[in-house]
Nucleic acid binder design. Structure first.
Lengths: 152, 152
DNA sequence: ATAAATAAGGACAAATTTGTCCTTATTTAT
DNA sequence: ATAAATAAGGACAAATTTGTCCTTATTTAT
């Protein structure tokens, strides 16, 4: 469904949203380890999200790291995906046809349509905050625990 | 959602199902042109599907080409995708977590679940025949008509 | 002022996907 | 038997994705 870039971006964003505050930042080392993603690659991806401090904010130097403001937590997951240009799923035809449309539908068009709409709805409705909360309160996990703690 | 390989595979399969019969085969040239896909690459992909004549059948020599038997038309779209190893969507966690499960859910797990199930249901239920019929009877298209006939 | 800690970012490399081109094998028509 | 038409398949190349490593810029603590 999503590329590695998108998977890491979402996991990192959710992790930062849950672990950081204006006072407490998280470093790239901790982030990458916690979400089980390659460090430098994750850093690269976060650069896209910190551009203009739109989604993620960052600070260099000692006690620096990544964090996310309360306002930024209101962004939808789709917005995060759009920023890293991974929003194909919400736009493209399942069969990859450029000309597929309501009047010129591909053979899957009308059957896939409701599913696509649900996908769009889910990703547009859910905010970063929503998912971070699921992480805090519910039983949701963000990493591959078995890798962090092999006993699980 | 799907790779180019998968998109071409599905389009080619549906096209062959609609245009061929045991007596009438379609050549790779016509197939690639009709579904707007690179010829040699499409040929490579079809090799995967003709292996053991499981999904698509082929015949070399003059009047040769690709065709599909009535029996093979009963295969589901998911089966086609499985053969070319593009069935990630039906299996993987949205966030790409190996350990994501009912008891250890990622933050999207329960919300994404019904959508995933619908995806699985759609692709397991729909057969090659179903989609080829949509092409014949309904108003469904399989190519980018604008490329074939720029007036549209 | 200086050293240490951190993200930013450039250059590169490995892996994978996407694509092309050529030769070989097979089949048919003459 | 031979030529022509076709898919099969190998070798390679281009493009893209995924990843690493090193240097630079910035900030903080001392």
């Amino acid at each position: 469904m999503f590329s590695k870039k998108a998977e890491y971006a979402l996991r990192a964003t959710i992790y930062i949203a849950q672990k950081s505050s204006n006072h407490k930042k998280v470093g790239i080392d901790e982030i990458a380890r916690s979400i089980d993603a390659p460090q430098s690659f994750t850093a690269k991806i976060l650069q896209l999200l910190t551009r203009d401090n739109k989604i993620i904010s960052s600070a260099r130097g000692p006690n620096g790291g990544f964090y996310i403001t309360a306002a930024a937590k209101k962004f939808s997951i789709r917005t995060v995906l759009e920023i890293i240009r991974e929003d194909d799923v919400f736009v493209k035809c399942v069969l990859g046809l450029k000309d597929c449309s309501e009047t010129q539908p591909c053979p899957m068009h009308f059957q896939y349509k409701p599913i696509k709409h649900q996908l769009i709805h889910l990703f547009e409705t859910k905010t970063i905050e929503d998912l971070a909360e699921g992480l805090t309160s519910g039983g949701a996990f963000i990493a591959n625990l078995s890798k962090i703690n092999p006993s699980k």
